[in-house]
Structures are given as C-alpha cells and as structure tokens.
Amino acid sequence: MSAAPVDGSCDPRFGPLREAFAENFSARGEPGAAIALMIEGRVVCDLWGGHRDAARKTPWASDTLVNFFSVGKAFTALVALRLAERGLLDLDAPAHRLWPEFAVNGKETVALRHMLSHQAGLPAIREELPDGAMLDWERMTSALAAQTPWWTPGVAHGYHVNTFGYLIGELVRRASGRTLGEILRSEIAGPLGADVHIGLPQTEHGRCAEFLWPALLPEKPEGPPDDTTLMKWNTYWNPPGISGAGWVNTAEWRSAEIPSTNGHGTARGIARVYSALAAGGMIDNIEILSRPMLAAAVEEQSFGPDRILERTSRFALGFQLPQDGRPLGPNPQAFGHFGAGGSLGFCDPVAGVAFGYVTNDMGPRWQNPRNKALLAAIYESLAA
C-alpha cells in the first residue's frame, strides 16, 4: 500500500506521532484523516493526509470537516453541564419536571444523571419508525417520551448509542429555549474558535469529507426476536438510518441535529475544546465549564457489563473513562470519547494533553489499530 502525503506541522519532539500517523496510511489502510495534539494549551502537532473522497482524487485539507460520530457525545454533555451549573438543569431532578410527557411507563424517576451515564434504560425505540425519522426531532423525542425502559432505570447501564443526544437535547431545549447545537456554537465552540458543530450550517457543507460507509450492512434477525435481540437491533437500526447508513453524506444529515451521532469537525477543533478541559475548564480566559462542575463530570457513574455492547464499559457524566483494554494513555485521570470508525477526542490533565483524531473510514470500533498507534506515539514522545 503506497503512502499518502501528510501535510501540516509537528514539533520534532513528536516525531513518533508523525510517523504513526503516516503509517496509518501506508500500513493500516487509512483513507483520509487528521490529528491535532496540544500540550499545556500549545499546538505541537497539526497534521492531515489522504483523501476526502471515495475516489481518492481530492486531498484532505487543513479545514476539512468530517462526521466524528460519538466524539460529539462529550460536547453534548458539556452543553448540559453548562446549563446545570447555571441552575437551568438539575442532574438529579426527574426529567419530567421539564418534560411532562416523559412521566409515563416507568420513567418517572429518570434524571439527567441517568441519561448522561447511559443508565436511563432507553438505548432504543421500540416503535418501528420509518427511514429518515431520525431527522425529525419531534418524532424522535415523542417516541422516547412514550417508551417503556428496556430495564429499570438506574440499576444497569447500556450504551445509548443514538438516543443519548435526543434525550439530553430535549432537556436542554426545554430548559433554555435553544437547541443543543445552538448553545454549542454560541457558548463553547464559537468563543474557543473550535471548528466543531452539531447541526452543520449549509455554508460549511463544501468542506465535508465523504464518509466511507461499509457497503454491506448487517441483516435483520429472522423471525420474532426476543426482547434483548430487539433492543440491540433497534439501538443501531431503528429508524434504519439512525446510525448514518444511507444518510451520512447527505445535506439533510449534515444540517440536522443528531447530537449522539452527527457531530462534524476538525481534529484541531476537537483538541481545542479538550485543551480547555485539560486546564480545568478554562483556557485563554474562556471558561467552558467551572472547575467544580468539571470535577463532578469526570467522576465514575457506571462501570461493568454493558447491556448493549456486551462487554465492560465505563462512563462518567457523558465522558468515557479509561479501562483495561481501552486506556487513554497511562494516566487514570484521562477522559474523552471515541467515535465510530476510530475518531477520538480526549485529554489527560496530568500530562497536559489534549488530542483530536478524525477519519472518514469505518474502521474497527472497539480495538482500532490506528488510534492505538497514535496514542502510543503521544506518550512515547512525552517520555523521550
């Protein structure tokens, strides 16, 4: 496999990171990607390479945007946490105080904390929805409001792959009168100058990379499924395009707000947000979260068997925490969020690290050799 050109800048100290990024193209099948590393608020590596289209004719550029999937869950959480520290949201109040329609079918005790930590019991919608319904906010939130939890809220956790953003976003909307994407833009991304978006303005669509979605999709189980099988299937495929299949490269998808799933941005933008978090919630006199709220946000909330992923997972309030088999470097204080395909945003406050990685390929989701190589190279460089 021939190497793709890599552009950008990298401090010589982080040569191993540049090499690992280049090897992602030459040895690990990367089609197009970008990385950005900040140390103590200073950009030390800002690289991009490969191509932004399936035909591999258009090079990735410094400002290329791409769908980073669940990396956006952390930004979704940041918006909710900002409202919580202002008293507009309460982590532990029943959600139905703001969302009266939600108080049915065993959800009367569900709180924002349950939603942020994947304990709400609502990873999937049972009602069969037509393709494209994920673009209709009212349709999705109404279905979730009517839903009976798949398990008793608070007694277990399971990754709310695609419903996470609708649940939290509806509380944000009712508490503030604004959408989650609007608040992200005006209160976090805008002030920081971070190129990250939930609900991408039409004017920015021309910068988007084509996401190379797999041609083959899983087949729906034959016959009447048991409840657990139905829950897992519906998590990813009800409505059929909720994970992005068939939609991810369309204008409708890019413009919509699907906060769990359709965030767009650059690696540099992701790293910029995490640079503030690595510094305790403030950088360059711009505070995106108070230090006490950030400390609460990264406390473990759920850890153990995940009812959706069928493996161990570990969550704080909207952030993924390190665990055996999926560390974020050597320091347990690190936190962040992975996205489908291997995209990643995280910070390590101990090492002063803030990092973003974006790709336009659906690589391995759990053990991704590309982001593992990048993580190893960051700490190899720091140790040199």
Rank of each mutant, 00 (worst) to 15 (best):
M1Q: 12
M1I: 15
A4L: 11
C10F: 13
P12E: 12
P12L: 08
G15T: 15
A20H: 11
S26F: 07
R28G: 01
R28W: 11
R28A: 09
I35E: 10
A36D: 13
M38Q: 13
I39E: 09
E40G: 02
G41S: 10
R42E: 15
R42C: 01
W48Q: 11
D53A: 13
D63P: 00
N67Y: 03
V71P: 08
T76E: 07
T76F: 12
V79L: 08
V79Y: 07
A84I: 11
R86A: 15
D92I: 05
A93C: 04
L98E: 04
F102Y: 10
E108Y: 00
E108P: 15
A111D: 06
M115S: 03
S117Y: 05
Q119H: 04
E127A: 14
P130S: 06
D131L: 06
M134E: 14
L135D: 00
L135C: 09
M140Y: 01
A143D: 03
A145W: 06
T148H: 05
P149W: 00
P149M: 00
W151S: 03
A156E: 11
G158R: 01
V161H: 04
N162P: 09
L167S: 02
I168W: 04
E170T: 08
L171K: 06
G177F: 06
R178L: 13
G181K: 07
L184H: 03
R185Q: 14
E187S: 13
E187P: 00
E187H: 13
A189Y: 11
P191A: 03
G193K: 11
G193C: 03
G199W: 09
G199F: 01
G199P: 09
L200D: 01
L200Y: 05
L200H: 04
Q202E: 14
E204Y: 07
C208L: 14
E210C: 08
E210H: 14
E210M: 09
L216G: 01
K220A: 15
T228Q: 05
T229H: 07
N234M: 04
W237N: 11
W237R: 07
P239V: 10
G246L: 06
G246A: 06
W247Q: 03
W253I: 03
R254V: 03
S255E: 11
S255T: 14
H264A: 03
H264L: 08
G269M: 05
I270H: 04
L277S: 02
N285T: 10
L289S: 02
M293T: 14
L294E: 02
L294Q: 10
A295R: 13
A297M: 06
A297D: 08
G304S: 07
G304Q: 05
P305F: 13
E310F: 15
G318A: 04
Q320A: 09
Q323R: 15
D324C: 01
G325L: 05
L328P: 01
G329V: 12
F335R: 10
F335I: 14
G345N: 05
C347L: 08
G352H: 07
Y357D: 04
M362P: 07
W366M: 15
P369W: 06
K372N: 13
L375A: 10
